[in-house]
Amino acid sequence: MNDRNKIMIVEDNDDDYEACVVALTQDNNLANTLQRCTTGDAALEFLMGAREGNSRHQLPSLILLDLNLPGTDGREVLQQIKADKALRMIPVVVMTTSKDEHDIQDCYMAGANSYVLKPVDLQGFFEAVARLRDYWFQIVILPDPG
């Protein structure tokens, strides 16, 4: 895991974000590689900017995406990312409370790389996020978004 691996978290809920951050950053130094967006529009804006070579922005290696967002929601964000040639290769992990079959199907059809339920209990949440982290940053070889 090198410092070029940035993680984008698109999450409006502060509690979830906090839990997510804690789960990702405990036992490692990932903290400064996290990029949070609270709305879908903000996330898209950031990604477009990074793609265009905006020096302040760096394309993430992994995107954790909540589906329930104010304004433009996660499904639209996912579609736009996967419709974009440059952004398509970035793995998107959908993290949501929705067990709706339509949501699961729609997301994979749209090109989601994983679909993860947010467990209600914090321990379960931590474990889930830890496994995600290990999987994506230790087992899988990610493309270089740079």
Binding site: D15, E18, N68, T97
Partner: peptide, 18 residues
């Protein structure tokens, strides 16, 4: 019910755990 209501519930759970 499954999302919006769970959201604060999960928030409470997270905060309680923390």
């Amino acid at each position: 019910a499954s999302h919006d209501l769970k959201e604060p519930l999960r928030g409470i759970a997270i905060n309680a755990n923390f």
